[in-house]
């Protein structure tokens, strides 16, 4: 029993990471119908930025946090302007390859800037692990879960309740119609990108203390994020959130109860099952559709 609780705690921690990443991806998809294969790299940027700003330059945490998020947003902005917007034919396959190219590019840049060695970041709050029913829970895990909830909630509020957010959704539903009603659809695209990559950076900042940050940490995280987003249903924020947590918990249970060697396979087997059985995802009413 005690083990099961421990597996759940570990699962929720990793799951919350996947959830934050998936929420960022899902948010971008719901406002631009684009899947950003470089999203994992923005997570890496966030983590590396916090290493530089907080650990190396010893800025106060809130300032370093803001700086790292700002970096993520700015890079997203630049990325949208320079690579996505300029694409001659914005077909999905073309855009996918562009984002794949961008992910390789960003990894290369990070390798030059930060070197090849991994870095470690101290926990945000210096407490011992908390013991619940014989299972240990990390303070940083609570931070991560909190961040995930806040982020998903914040983006949800933004998209559903604010005018700008509603405009953004309108652009995704029908760009031309949105433009006709006077929504500056170009600006909305940029904004969506900045918010999405910024949230990726947030994910990076929060996981930096529990794991090691290096220039190549993003790829696997990004892929797991996709799985989570797909499981929950592309385009649905809470679906992505739930998908992330579910994925984390199942992985942890799988590693504990079945085999740790097959842990990574669990995510992808789950993904395939979801795609075969209910391709729209567990928590989304939308049908899977063509590009």
């Amino acid at each position: 029993m005690q083990e099961i609780i421990q597996y759940l705690f570990s699962g929720i921690t990793t799951g919350a990471i996947y959830a934050v990443i998936a929420v960022g991806l899902s948010m971008l998809y719901s406002s631009t119908e684009l899947i950003n294969f470089a999203h994992g790299e923005f997570v890496m940027l966030g983590a590396m930025a916090i290493v530089t700003l907080w650990v190396h330059m010893a800025l106060p945490l809130p300032l370093a946090f803001a700086g790292a998020v700002a970096l993520g947003c700015c890079m997203g902005l630049l990325f949208e302007r320079l690579a996505i917007r300029t694409a001659r034919t914005p077909q999905p396959i073309v855009l996918v390859i562009i984002t794949v190219g961008a992910s390789i590019f960003l990894r290369g840049v990070a390798m030059i800037v930060w070197g090849k060695d991994p870095f470690s970041v101290p926990a945000f709050s210096r407490h011992d692990s908390i013991e619940i029913a014989g299972a240990a829970l990390l303070p940083q895990s609570i931070w991560i879960v909190g961040a995930a909830v806040l982020l998903a909630g914040g983006i949800h509020f933004f998209l559903k309740k604010t005018l700008t957010g509603k405009a953004m959704v309108a652009c995704a539903v029908n760009k031309k119609a949105a433009w006709l009603t006077g929504i500056p659809s170009e600006k909305m695209g940029i904004l969506a990108f900045a918010v999405s990559t910024g949230s990726g950076a947030v994910a990076g900042i929060f996981i930096a203390p529990i794991t090691m940050s290096s220039y190549d940490m993003g790829t696997m995280l990004g892929l797991k994020g996709f799985c989570a987003a797909m499981i929950g249903g592309l385009g649905s924020l809470w679906g992505a959130f739930a998908g992330g947590i579910l994925l984390g918990v199942l992985e942890s249970l799988g590693a504990g109860l079945i085999s740790s060697g097959l842990k990574d396979a669990i995510a992808f087997i789950l993904l395939l099952l979801i795609l075969y059985i209910c391709p729209g995802g567990l928590f989304s009413a939308k049908e899977a559709k063509r590009f």
Binding site: I35, F226, L271, L275
Partner: peptide, 14 residues
């Protein structure tokens, strides 16, 4: 189809 097919094949490959 679309992204779903991409993710499905990606999962299979992994």
């Amino acid at each position: 189809s679309g992204y779903y097919l991409g993710m499905g094949t990606l999962g299979f490959g992994m």
